[in-house]
Structure formats: C-alpha cells, structure tokens
Simulated scan of single mutants.
Amino acid sequence: MHNKPVAVVTGASSGIGAETVRLLCENGYLVFMGARRLDRLQALAEKYSAIPIVLDVSSAESVHRFTEELPDSVQVLVNNAGGALGLEQVAEFDEAHWLEMYQSNVLGLARMTKALYPRLLSRPNPVSHVFNIGSVASFETYPGGAGYTACKHAVRAISETMRLEWLGKPIRVTEIDPGFVETEFSLVRFGGDVARASSVYAGMVPLTATDIAETILWSISRPPHVNIDVMVVRPLDQARIDKIHREA
C-alpha cells in the first residue's frame, strides 16, 4: 500500500497538465493522469512514475471508466482538460466548435468533479483541493472569442458555486486564470496551422507551462485554513487578453 497523497490531473498529455504531473510527482504525490493520447501519457509515466489512464472528459462513459481505476481517496484534482477551437465571430459561429468546447471545458470539469467528490471528502488530510484551470477569458472578452470566453466564464461561475456549496467542508477550490501560455493551445485552436499558432506569441515573451504548474503547487502548500480563490497570471507583455506589447 502506498502512503502518498493522491492527485488526479486531466488534460495531462502536454502543456500545463504535463508540467503539473511532473511537479506533483517530484513533491511526493501519487499522480493519476488522464488524457486522450495514451502514447503521450506513457512517455510521461516512464519519466515521472505517474499512472497513465485514457480519459476523454467529454464522454461520461470515459470519465466513469477512468474513475473506476482510482483509489478510494483523492486529495488533489486538477481540472485542466479543455481548450479553444476556431476564431469565428458570433455571426459566423461554428456550432460544432462551440459544442466541443462546452463538452470539454465545462461539462468535462463538472463530470470529473461530481465523480471524484466522494473521494475528495474521504481523505482531507486535513483538506483536499480542486483546481479549475480557467483563463483570463473567464472575465474578459475579445472579437472572435465568444465561444471560448463563454466556456471560461462558465468555469468561473462553477468555481464560485462550488465554494458556496462546499462551505464548511474540507475541500479548497482554486481557479487559475492564465494569460498567454506557449503550449499546444494555439496549435489546436488553429487546426494544426503552425505558422498561425506561432504568430500568437511573436514579438513577446509568453508564460510557460511551468509558470502555471508552479502556481498550483504553491496554492497546495498554503496552510489548511488558507484558500487561494482565484489567481490571475499574465506575462509582463500582456495587459489584457487582446492588449499585447510586441517588439518590432
């Protein structure tokens, strides 16, 4: 039997998720990591001794299969799975894109939280911790971003509601809202268009996945009576979601 605290990370195959897996493993957690790309998870497992399980948070059946593989208690849940698709304005919105974003960013978060709530309550030690990875899009908007910002606004509403519903229970809820982070985010958003994805970060210094993973680890390390409700983390070169300083 292991005696390590258990952490679960969704969207763990790359970017913020993968870096969160690394830091949690290095700091004494037994980490169960979920994502659709099993080959990526297996590569991480070899490096960090985390446990890979296929997970598609947009599928209730997949979430059920994933949670059946977990121990009876979980101390940390990182709801990281999600992302953006397309940049169409509302008058030309792509319904398939919006539905897919809502399934992963919003319903996926809700599915994982519902499934693991009993486990989070079972071993507070002295508190458990849920992280919802949002975005500065959870409180800002921009042309072409209505589908994604609507999803991330919903993440904020869910995070705030969880704190109200769980008041008095030993579960902390933290929302992390990053600005520009150079990961596969833009590559996915633009359907694999490398040049277009790279242009998002041209002439500025974005955050790294490690920057965000470190905020998760820091929040966990606070005394049990302290809850970091919301943390907004931007690169110095970003003042708003659409206000970027770029070198010529």
Rank of each mutant, 00 (worst) to 15 (best):
E175Q: 03
R22D: 14
N227E: 01
I16V: 04
S122Y: 04
N27A: 05
E140F: 07
V188H: 14
W166L: 11
K47Q: 15
A115T: 11
K114H: 09
E88C: 15
C25E: 12
P71G: 06
F185M: 11
I158D: 06
Q238C: 00
P143V: 01
V181I: 15
K169E: 06
R222Y: 02
M1E: 04
V226A: 15
A157D: 04
I228W: 10
P235K: 01
Y142I: 00
N105W: 07
G34K: 07
L23T: 04
V205F: 08
Y148I: 00
N79H: 02
L30K: 03
Y148E: 00
W166C: 08
A146N: 07
G147D: 14
E68I: 01
T10A: 14
V226S: 15
G108K: 01
P224Y: 02
S13P: 12
V76R: 00
S135P: 12
G134K: 06
S199W: 05
H97M: 10
E140C: 07
I51G: 09
L217P: 10
R172D: 03
G17V: 06
T174G: 04
V9Y: 02
H64Q: 06
F131M: 08
P170D: 02
P170Y: 03
A50M: 12
R222D: 03
L164Q: 11
M1T: 09
S13K: 13
M112D: 00
Q42A: 08
P126L: 13
C25Q: 14
P118N: 08
A84F: 13
K152S: 11
K152R: 15
S58E: 00
K47Y: 14
D72W: 02
T174M: 10
K243G: 07
I53H: 08
P235C: 01
G145D: 12
Y48Q: 12
R119A: 14
E95C: 12
A202V: 13
T113H: 02
G179F: 04
I158Q: 09
L41W: 04
A81N: 08
G34F: 13
V9A: 06
V226N: 15
V63I: 01
M204P: 03
P178Y: 11
S221Y: 02
T149S: 15
P170H: 01
F32L: 06
A213F: 03
E69S: 06
M162N: 10
L164K: 10
A7W: 09
L70T: 09
I158G: 02
H64R: 12
E95F: 08
Q89E: 12
A154F: 03
A84E: 13
G83H: 10
S58P: 05
R172P: 05
